[in-house]
Design a protein around this nucleic acid. Structure first.
Lengths: 297, 297
DNA sequence: CAAAGTCCTGAATCATATG
DNA sequence: ACATATGATTCAGGACTTT
């Protein structure tokens, strides 16, 4: 598989194919969506209110990369070289307190549960800052956890202050919507290939998203502070979905889930609020031919 | 360091040194403990009620290996007492529901928080079945998580059914009792040695507790279903405690925490209810000389 | 052109001292 | 109890520069 954006123009070029405009639809224009409205589309709109407009039981796979609520201090951490650590200080990661965060979590999980097909599975990713809250809320909602999967970063940011272990992992929770679900998709052979060709183990060694794959603006600054690696998304999709499946991501960011879904012959529905990210997704999807996105060129 | 029990007699020999009797004290004999009562002792008694008798702020390090609430079907339930010693329903991993489990968790965590010295840290281990519940409850109680540490088993039980990933991990939560805590113990150099000599990473590759280290009865049956490897306990103690520290374990099982604590020149306080495990601990501690356990021989 | 060296940065729950 | 200012500290990997 080719590396991201190898075949796309630089981001500062303003001219784009017209058909890419059709990739994003305005959620505000709809009271309810039907599947045809949103098939292989990114819906522009706020996460929760847009999810509520979705029809029930349409997704084969749900992927959610929510805010982690890192609770970082507003001040930047300086390195001895003078450069600063760009912690996440986006407004979307700010919550009043745990109760506020929990409430948000509960709401999007409820909607995800409704949107999932009966045999669908869901992946949620976070760090220790919030994964436990998410996991407990999932269990309380009746989700049945199939696995924790550990994303073991080969090149984590070191903890140079030496007061705790270097945090080299993020945790993914993989679950079905109910304990009684039978027949969810799991591609066993693919899982073996993915996890070091061994037993199909729940630890995945994958580097951070850096280099050419990392989407950057005209100034060379990263567009999204937490862009997920394509390799991670590939493993998720290859191990737990089939060709033609609908993959739903209500917090798309730079759209890695839909991008990889499409590369792997799946379909997607994504939601994203931020205009800057939406613009980036359009650029990114220039990789595809119109017919691959069910758009008439 | 020598392997466990290399210098002890086989478990089927009934004659033990008398001084080992003093290793276990009866919790029921006390209304309140003072530190001298319980210094390098195993307290025989039920976990919660015994914890409540403990003085506040005495532990430098708390290690808790609680029931995981695996929710296995009844016939596969793990028996705390092995063969039915008494008719009482003393099964180890049975809880009515999540609320029941959460209530138990909340109670022992509250007590642990009280027993911890102001700069103490706490380790709790579990699998995905319950770690998220534990983690959220910890956060709600004000514990401040320092790290998730992943115990990555080199020889996990393979998953033959092919419906999910082979679960090769357990998760440890490492935390201080409050966000404001300053000056907890973290032996940085030791952490580097522990985690592949590199960054001091939060992923530890350790085999399951098997072979000679695994404690077995006269019939060769394992005594405890989830005995933790010594290597795991060594890493915990070496990375986050100092010589002479008091390490507290309210659910001792076969006493690995205290055993390794003592080997590494720390002190311990342990609580264990089950007479069979207490007997095993006595055997195990025959490894030491009386003066190492502050007992007059 | 290859090899070696420099610089930058990645979801980060920092530590200590002073007011 | 707060807030604010300043100090000490790290590795892998990619981009870029120099030899």
């Amino acid at each position: 598989m080719k590396t991201l954006l190898e075949q796309t123009e630089p981001l500062n070029i303003k001219i784009k194919p017209n058909w890419l405009e059709d990739l994003v639809i305005k959620g505000g224009d709809y009271n309810k969506f039907n599947v045809r409205d949103i098939f292989n589309k990114i819906i522009s709109g706020e996460c929760l209110e847009t999810m509520k407009k979705m029809p029930p039981e349409i997704a084969d796979l749900v992927f959610i990369d929510p805010p982690y609520f890192l609770q970082l201090p507003p001040k930047k951490l300086l390195r001895w070289t003078g450069s600063q650590v760009n912690g996440v200080n986006e407004t979307w990661d700010i919550f009043k307190d745990f109760a506020d965060y929990d409430n948000f979590t509960l709401n999007y999980l409820k909607e995800a549960q409704r949107i999932m097909k009966p045999t669908a599975t869901i992946w949620v990713i976070a760090t220790y800052h919030s994964i436990h809250r998410i996991g407990k809320i999932m269990q309380d909602l009746g989700f049945w956890i199939l696995n924790d999967v550990i994303w073991f970063k080969t090149n984590p940011m070191p903890n140079f202050l030496g007061v705790r272990f270097t945090n080299a992992t993020e945790t993914l929770i993989w679950a079905v919507k109910d304990k009684k679900v039978k027949g969810h998709t799991f591609n066993k052979d693919m899982a073996k290939k993915i996890a070091n060709g061994k037993l199909g183990i729940n630890v995945w060694q994958i580097p951070l998203c850096t280099g050419f794959e990392r989407l950057k603006d005209e100034k060379g600054q990263k567009i999204h502070p937490t862009q997920k690696p394509e390799a991670l998304m590939e493993r998720i999709i290859l191990s737990s979905s089939k060709e033609g499946d609908i993959i739903f991501d209500p917090m798309a960011g730079t759209g890695t889930s839909g991008f990889i879904a499409k590369k792997l012959k799946r379909n997607f529905v994504m939601i994203e609020r931020d205009e800057r990210y939406l613009k980036t997704i359009r650029k990114r999807f220039n990789y595809f031919k119109p017919h691959e996105l069910n758009i008439r060129s």
